[in-house]
């Protein structure tokens, strides 16, 4: 088991390196294609001389490799890696260090993810289990139909519809009925409020969780169905064990493996969804930071955040792999 863990961690670190290299290569190419490298970081803006200089220094744009499209620019890559190792992820257009901005934004994103996870657990696991248990009956069909419908609605559309069509009438109605500072009024607020972090996050979190839970639900259902008919379940029943015992120990436990692996895949989507959610609903989290930076063409921030989020994704996938090994002994001995 220990060797498995060590191997997975080393592999994870290697992947981190590869991912950073890939991002570097892509950004380098984009900069090279842009003609004037430094200007690539400013989009439509016209930068001041000092901003231009800061970017040139930070990214080592003085290096001639940036004038040659196709040159992988490994020198600047190593330089950037050492900066990352020191915790230096650059600054935004106004000179604020990215790490500071992230530290402020992180709690909000975490809060959002808590709500999303709870939504997945409740809706995804519960409904998936119910659908599996009553397979073929009306409730199974209606659950699956609902999951198809939910799936079809892109997060973006749901949020735009909610934010631009529903929030204003809902808030007005809530204010009129319950008062300006009441819970319902805050629930439906069109944008995030610092004083009521949890309340204003509930509905966006719910919506985001809803869109992601459909594949989760289907997976839970499929995994449990596979186990209902599995031979080891038949064996367990033949030993005279009660239904409750069989369900807990032999069905749920065995279906946990594919479900946990699913978390790894769904996480990447959830991250994208979070970016959209925070962006549209103006929640000051990491996703919003990214969203705003794209809109403002603050490219160095964009580069920094995408890098960090990719590393986070690798971390999550590593955790999933380790959980997988903990749950299924067959893998540990590879």
């Amino acid at each position: 088991m220990v060797s498995y863990v060590i191997r997975r961690v080393l592999l994870g670190l290697f992947t981190v390196l590869l991912v950073l290299l890939l991002l570097h290569l892509l950004t380098t190419l984009a900069i090279q294609l842009n003609g004037n490298p430094a200007l690539a970081f400013f989009g439509d803006h016209v930068p001041t001389a000092s901003q231009l200089h800061a970017v040139e220094v930070r990214y080592g744009l003085g290096d001639s490799c940036y004038q040659q499209p196709g040159n992988p620019c490994l020198g600047p890559f190593w330089h950037r890696l050492s900066e990352y190792a020191h915790g230096d992820f650059g600054t935004d257009l106004e000179g604020r260090p990215l790490t500071d901005l992230l530290a402020q934004a992180l709690p909000n994103t975490l809060r959002l993810f808590v709500i999303v996870t709870i939504t997945w657990l409740i809706i995804g696991m519960l409904l998936g289990s119910v659908a599996a248990r009553f397979r073929g009956r009306p409730i199974d069909h209606s659950i699956r139909l609902t999951s198809v419908l939910i799936d079809a609605f892109p997060v973006f559309v749901m949020l735009v519809v909610y934010r631009f069509i529903f929030t204003v009438p809902l808030t007005t109605w809530a204010r009129r009925t319950f008062g300006s500072d009441s819970i319902p009024a805050l629930l439906f607020k069109p944008s995030y409020s610092e004083e009521h972090p949890w309340l204003t996050l509930i509905i966006p979190g719910l919506l985001l969780g809803l869109t992601g839970c459909a594949p989760f639900l289907r997976l839970v259902r499929a995994a449990q169905l596979e186990n209902y008919n599995a031979e080891h379940v038949r064996t367990a029943r033949s030993k005279g064990l009660s239904n409750a015992h069989v369900t807990a120990y032999h069905i749920v436990r065995n279906s946990s493996v594919p479900v946990v692996t699913a978390v790894g895949f769904v996480f990447a989507d959830a991250l994208s969804g979070a970016v959209i959610t925070e962006g549209v609903m103006n929640i000051r989290g990491m996703g919003n930071l990214l969203w705003q930076s794209v809109q403002k063409s603050d490219v160095s921030v964009v580069v920094g955040i995408v890098t960090i989020l990719s590393v986070v994704t690798i971390g999550v996938m590593l955790l999933v792999d380790l959980a997988y090994a903990a749950l299924d002994p067959r893998i540990r001995l590879d």
Binding site: H232, R234, T235, Y249, N254, V257, L327, P329
Partner: peptide, 11 residues
Amino acid sequence: FQDALAALNPV
């Protein structure tokens, strides 16, 4: 049962 590998719970 016939197939002991399938009939026993792997975890």
